[in-house]
């Protein structure tokens, strides 16, 4: 009997709705967790996988790529095309042409996995992800645009 009375009082006083409202009220005073993206840049973690880019040896400035075609073979989307050539000093090979088609790239990072250059891999996943363009042909990135620092954005904020 007391249970029923208590239940009746609860339903009349809208207790459970008031509990819910107290939750929303408490949340009014919490700090924001959203990032206003185009105005603020999001805080990317070190391992973030953006577009794959090429790297030069930071000490000598030489190309790290040895033209082994392993990344081309590992790519599930067929978006990498490498044409190897002999290095001018005669030792080993280098890439004469290295084209990535970002239209097809799925940012999986499988191309970085088999890269044989140590300790830095020649191809790596950069933190750039803003690729919007007005034309499809612009997604074919030739070799000189693949190095770090090369401009990929063609619009401004």
């Amino acid at each position: 009997m007391t249970n029923r009375i208590w239940g009746f009082i609860k339903s009349v006083l809208l207790i459970e709705l008031l509990i819910g409202l107290s939750v929303t009220l408490r949340n009014q005073f919490r700090p924001h967790t959203t990032v206003e993206y185009p105005r603020e840049t999001p805080n990317l973690k070190p391992r973030f996988r953006g577009i794959p880019r090429l790297r030069k040896n930071p000490e000598t400035g030489e190309d790290l790529c040895v033209g082994c075609l392993l990344c081309e073979k590992a790519c599930p989307d067929d978006c990498i095309k490498v044409v190897p050539e002999k290095r001018p000093d005669g030792k080993g090979k280098q890439a004469a042409k290295f084209i990535i088609n970002y239209e097809r790239c799925c940012f999986c990072g499988l191309c970085v996995d088999p890269c044989p250059t140590k300790p830095l891999t020649a191809i790596y996943m950069s933190h750039d992800f803003e690729l919007a363009s007005e034309s499809r042909t612009k997604f074919y990135y030739p070799m000189n645009n693949l190095y770090e620092g090369a401009q990929i954005k063609e619009y401004s904020r």
Partner: peptide, 21 residues
């Protein structure tokens, strides 16, 4: 997840035989 594997939705986090990193 982003800290571990670098992606937020399509993780591609594991490799055959274990983990990448």
């Amino acid at each position: 997840f982003e800290e571990f594997c670098g992606a937020r939705l399509t993780y591609n986090a594991f490799r055959i035989g274990g983990l990448l990193e």
